[in-house]
Design a protein around this nucleic acid. Structure first.
Lengths: 92, 92, 92, 92
DNA sequence: CACTGGAAAATGCCGC
DNA sequence: GCGGCATTTTCCAGTG
């Protein structure tokens, strides 16, 4: 069985620690979000509806981003180069 | 370590076989789909654009399905019962 | 905007239909598999363990062994015990 | 259609803003973690093995052992090679 | 052959 | 406590 050099081993430990630290922070935020929903619910809001609203707002943003991707794909499919693309946008 | 009764063991084997068989069939279909895209590409179609189109068509369907889900959630949030829901739909 | 020739357009439609049909069949199989797991569970089997088993069976032994060797080295470097090591694969 | 009181409406907006802010922070952390893995990979570590290690470290040993016991029984019933065997080959 | 994006699988959570 | 659902994570094909 192979063994890592002392230095590499040390490096590995640092990486693992860093990632685990970041994941802890991430989990804390996940919990905070959960708390917010619970709080909202206890104030009389419907948590599920709230989630739906927030997810819709996010999708709106994502959609806008993706719309350009679709346009790019179709333009490519029609043989238009990025250069023409710039022009067609400028001409609108 | 525990051992399964002969009958249970047999049952387990059957289940595993069945699932693996279904997964094989599923994989075959996945390959068929891949072939279709390759075929389309070789006929001059842009595969990526094709995928986009099909994914959009699927999303349209999903959206319609989800729209009702959203309505349900909001109706619930507003305290409307399923019974009222039926009525509101009938009244459109 | 470019327009497809009638014939090409027809061809495109056929392709889209075929792919969507294949995807429907694929989805049906996915549902069948889900049913099998549910059925197994209701007969007393542990669905999660079942999934793990099936996933293991479809893995190439050599690949798995190689990957485990790397994990082994990392675990050793981090001072993790053999006991944890033995169960690692199953615990995913 | 029901309308929210001005005050309630204001409250709703605050909640949505807070949640969206938390989700932004969470996403930033997700990206940081991804970066860490990429960095580790570019230093010569096996990212997949790294992920597995970290996932193992965060699991409860008792739970893991129990689940493995079930898998063990199933493997035996199916005539699969016990994990220990694989490990003795890969280790040392 | 490494990277990226998209599909599939696994996990965890919420409601009954 | 279980089933359904949403999120997260993993995997894999396609691309440069």
């Amino acid at each position: 069985m192979t063994t890592l050099h002392a230095q590499t081993q040390q490096h590995l430990r640092r990486i693992v620690e860093q990632i685990e630290r970041l994941e802890d922070e991430k989990k804390a935020l996940t919990d905070d979000i959960k708390d917010k929903y619970a709080e909202a619910k206890s104030t009389g809001f419907d948590a599920k509806a709230l989630r739906k609203i927030i997810s819709m707002r996010k999708q709106d943003t994502d959609t806008r981003t993706q719309e350009q991707a679709i346009i790019d794909v179709y333009m490519h499919a029609l043989g238009m180069t990025p250069m023409e693309k710039v022009w067609s946008e400028a001409a609108e």
